[in-house]
């Protein structure tokens, strides 16, 4: 009988593999690798960032589920929008998000990303993140505990494994909608202003 930490690890992993879906074996394998390896961009955009060190270090140790930090957007799979998001930060988040390569996911932490939270009447924060970026998973709370962040990650991993998490496709398909909303709060110049249309370009190379 396992107990304590090993039991918890087993439960988490069992939970991770519980999702069964009908997909071809190639898709299943691809999604399995994507699910088992999640690189999180090191960008603490708001106060939720203070619970990320505990999540990623020895007490909660997200690395045991294959989740680890990545320094640059080029190498990251997940961007965490950790809490309230002022216009100035939103601009940087959009820029960073667009630099990440597909498939990429957005995890939103805290009540502030859901509906403004504590700062519902603040003139400098956005109230609903999904108007500006496609959100895969919300983790509620002010601020979410490391356990909830892990829980959110596992839910996200389950969706990736089932091939359901496809927010980046949504972003490409509805790019005009998102860009319109972004311009509404950030003004005409939402950086980066791309000359070439490389962002929507297939394959890139």
């Amino acid at each position: 009988m396992e107990e304590g930490f090993l039991l918890e690890q087993k439960t988490l992993e069992g939970d991770l593999n519980s999702e069964t879906s009908h997909q071809s074996s190639v898709d299943f394998l691809m999604n399995w690798f994507r699910k088992r390896s999640i690189f999180v961009l090191a960008y603490g955009t708001g106060c939720g960032a203070i619970e990320m060190p505990p999540t990623f270090t020895s007490r909660y140790d997200a690395e045991r589920l294959g989740i680890r930090g990545a320094a640059t957007p080029r190498q990251a799979d997940v961007i965490i929008v950790s809490g309230y998001c002022s216009y100035k930060t939103l601009r940087r988040i959009i820029r960073t998000y667009e630099q990440m390569s597909n498939p990429k996911y957005v995890l939103a932490l805290g009540s502030c990303t859901v509906n403004g939270g504590m700062y519902w009447d603040s003139y400098n924060t956005i109230k609903k993140l999904e108007d500006y970026l496609p959100v895969d998973m919300y983790v509620n709370g002010c601020m979410p505990r490391p356990e909830s962040i892990l829980e959110g990650f596992i839910e996200l991993q389950k969706e990736i494994g089932a091939g359901k998490a496809s927010s980046w496709q949504k972003y490409e398909e509805n790019h005009e909608f998102y860009r319109k909303n972004q311009e509404a709060v950030l003004g005409e110049k939402v950086e980066p202003s791309y000359e070439a249309d490389w962002y929507l370009y297939e394959g890139g190379l």
């Binding site: 106060c47 002022s86 009447d121």
Partner: peptide
């Protein structure tokens, strides 16, 4: 700075 500006001083006044 300013990436985290939430206008606390305004919110407190309200």
């Amino acid at each position: 700075v300013g990436y985290l500006h939430r206008g606390f001083e305004k919110l407190v006044e309200r």
